[in-house]
Amino acid sequence: MKTVSQILHAKGGTEVHTISPGETVLEAIRRMAEHGIGALVVTEGGAIVGMVSERDYARKVILMGRNSDQTAVREIMSPTVLYVRPQQSNEDCMALMANSRVRHLPVMESGRLIGLISMGDLVKDIISDQQFTIEQLEHYISGQHA
């Protein structure tokens, strides 16, 4: 299994999109749409104070009849943030996500936010590993092994 660090590298970067808790939910949704992502890390004064996702929006704004342009991110964000470290494995992340029912995990190193891993990143990594194994087995079976 690959490490979080390897997955971030394969993903092509460690850019993490953030938002402050006082900004509107409408701005959060705009940023997610602009960057093609499903969640933002909520930060204040350089510290992580929560996560806000499309799921939070659907459940806490749309279903509750709130206005996106009048609701602050702090009102709908999830204040408990689980995170992983770069040396942790794909399996560690999958277990944490499944047990906690979250889809995004910030990656922290020495108290610093260095990346974000999503369920999609992990699934993509697993599929890539499986495809490689299948190709190796096909070459072995067909007698094309080295």
Rank of each mutant, 00 (worst) to 15 (best):
D69L: 01
R66H: 12
G120E: 13
R112D: 02
D121Q: 05
S78N: 12
Q88E: 15
I48Y: 04
G111F: 11
N67Y: 15
Q88N: 07
G38M: 05
P21C: 13
E27F: 05
A39G: 10
I126H: 00
L8R: 03
G38K: 05
E44T: 00
S100V: 05
M77T: 08
P21D: 12
I141Q: 04
H17E: 07
R85A: 02
V52P: 03
L63I: 09
Y57H: 13
M1C: 02
V42R: 09
S89Q: 06
G12T: 05
V16T: 14
M1E: 01
S53K: 05
L105W: 04
T43F: 09
I76M: 09
S128D: 11
M108T: 01
D92V: 00
G45D: 06
S78A: 13
I76K: 09
T43H: 08
I76L: 09
E23T: 01
Q87L: 00
P106Q: 02
A39Y: 11
I29M: 13
A28D: 02
A33Q: 04
V52I: 13
K124D: 09
L63M: 14
N90I: 14
D121V: 06
Q144S: 04
I117M: 05
M64F: 03
D92M: 00
T71Y: 11
G120F: 00
L113P: 01
S5P: 00
H9I: 00
E75A: 14
